[in-house]
Design a protein around this nucleic acid. Structure first.
Lengths: 232, 232
DNA sequence: CGCGGCTTTGATGTTCATCAAGTAAAGTGG
DNA sequence: CCACTTTACTTGATGAACATCAAAGCCGCG
C-alpha cells in the first residue's frame, strides 16, 4: 500500500482531526493500514438492515441516508442524513452485531472502512479516544432525537420550511442547492405524504419564498421561511 | 461513611453488575465513596433544561421521564421513560456541559449520583468500561429512536395500544398496573391530544380489551391489543 | 417507442385537534 | 376537617388539517 502514511491518506484526511485527535502518529499508521475506501454511486445501498457489522464506517465525501423499513404497510422512514466525516455506523457498532438500519447513498460518495476490532481496541487502550467517541455518539443521537422533537410540533408548512433550511444551512451552506432526495424521500424524512410535500413546495413557489427548477431549490426569502419554520 | 464497601452499597447495587462489570473491587471502592443517593418524590424535577452537568446519574428505583419543553406554543414532549438502572444522564453527559432536556420523577424514586470527573476518568483508564459505556449509550438511544419510528407509522389506536403494552411488558412486567403518568403525559409521549388519549382508552374499555379504574389499567385481551398495535 | 417511476394538481373523505361544558379528584388554606 | 380552588378527567360537537384516490404530464431508460 505504498510507503507508510503516504498512500494511506489518513494524515490529510479530515477525519483524523476529528476522531484521531488523540491518537499518536505511530498508532495512526497501524490503523491506517486497516483502512479501505469504497466509492459508491447515488442510489447504492451500503448497509442493509440485518447485515452483520464487521467494520467501522465513516463518510469521506458525498451524502447518505440512514433509514428503516417496515413491512406491513410497506413503508420507509429516513432517520437522518449523514454528511462528510459523520461516523455513520456509530449508532449500532458498539451495541450490536447486526445493523438495525439501512444506509444508502443519496449522492455519489466515498465511504471509509476501518477494521472494527482495531477501533474497539483503540477505545480500550486510548482513553481520550474513548471519550471522543462517547462525545461523538452523543452528539449524533442528540441531533436525531431533536429532529423528531422539532418535527413533531410543526404543521406541514413548518416541516417543509425546516427541511429546506436544513439543506441550506446544515448540509450545503448555500441558499441554492440541488435536492439530493426525491419528494417521496422528503416525505419519509419528515413524516407526511408525498403529495403534500409537492403541494407545499408549490405553495412556497407561488408565494415567492423559493424558486424551484426540478431538484434545484433557491431560497429567496429566508426570513419568512424561518418564521414559517418556527411558528408552523 | 461507614467502613469501606459496607455503608457504600455498591457491592449489592445491581448497577455494579451493569456498568462496573469490568471495574476491580479496588477501583470500585474509590468510586463508591464519591456516590450519593437522592430520594425524590413523584413530580419532583431532578434536572432542568440548561442546568450545568456536574454528575453522572442513574436511577436505582422508581420511574422518571426525560422530557423537553418548547415555549412558543407551550408544549412538553416526553422523550422516554427511564426505569431502574438506566443511566439517565447518558444522553448529554459526554457531549455537553449543560443538559438539553429535563428529568422529572413520575414515581417516588432513588437516584444515584457519581462524580462525573471520576466516571470520565474511569473511561480513560479502563478500556472495557469505556466499551460498556459505548454499548450502553448506543442501546439507550436506539430504543428512543425506534420509539419514534414505531409511533410515527401508527394511528391513534395503535399508539395507545403500543403504550399500554410498553407499560405491561417493558416496565411493569404485569398485565395489571397503575399508570404512573396522566392522560396528558401519555399524549406528550406519543404525540396526540389529551382528549383523544381518553377517548381511545374509553373505546378499548367499551370493547372489553382493557379495564380502567382511574389510573389502574388491566389488559384483558392482550392478543387483540397486539393486533391493534401492529396494524394500527 | 413504450414502460415505469417521479412529479404535479384537483377532488374527496377520514382522521384527528380543538372547542365547549361538565364531572370527578386532588390539593390548599382557613 | 371542611369549603374553596385548581387540576385532571370525560364526552360530545365541530371544523381543520391532512391522507388518499384519481388522472395526467414528464423524464429517463432499456
Amino acid at each position: 500500500m505504498g510507503e507508510n502514511g503516504h498512500f494511506c491518506s489518513c494524515k490529510e484526511c479530515v477525519v483524523r482531526n476529528l476522531i484521531f485527535e488523540h491518537v499518536s502518529v505511530d498508532e495512526l499508521a497501524d490503523y491506517c493500514s486497516s483502512k479501505t475506501e469504497r466509492t459508491v454511486r447515488k442510489g447504492e445501498k451500503i448497509v442493509s438492515e440485518g447485515d452483520p457489522i464487521s467494520s467501522f464506517l465513516y463518510i469521506k465525501s458525498g451524502l447518505l441516508k440512514l433509514h428503516r423499513h417496515t413491512a406491513d404497510p410497506s413503508y420507509d422512514q429516513i432517520i437522518s442524513i449523514a454528511k462528510p466525516f459523520d461516523l455513520i455506523s456509530i449508532l449500532s457498532v458498539f451495541s450490536d452485531t447486526k445493523y438495525n438500519l439501512s444506509i444508502t447513498a443519496i449522492e455519489n460518495s466515498v465511504v471509509c472502512e476501518f477494521d472494527l476490532e482495531k477501533i474497539k481496541n483503540l477505545v480500550r487502550t486510548n482513553g481520550e479516544f474513548a471519550l471522543d467517541m462517547l462525545a461523538r455518539i452523543s452528539r449524533t443521537t442528540d441531533k436525531i432525537i431533536r429532529k423528531y422533537n422539532d418535527i413533531n410540533i410543526k404543521n406541514l408548512r413548518g416541516r417543509i420550511a425546516y427541511i429546506l433550511l436544513l439543506f441550506a444551512d446544515d448540509i450545503y451552506q448555500s441558499p441554492i442547492y440541488e435536492l439530493p432526495i426525491s419528494r417521496k424521500e422528503i416525505a419519509e424524512l419528515i413524516g407526511m405524504s408525498t403529495e403534500n410535500v409537492i403541494r407545499i413546495l408549490s405553495e412556497f413557489r407561488r408565494e415567492h419564498i423559493i424558486k424551484i427548477n426540478g431538484k434545484e431549490i433557491e431560497i429567496v426569502d429566508k426570513d419568512i421561511l424561518k418564521l414559517i419554520c418556527l411558528h408552523g
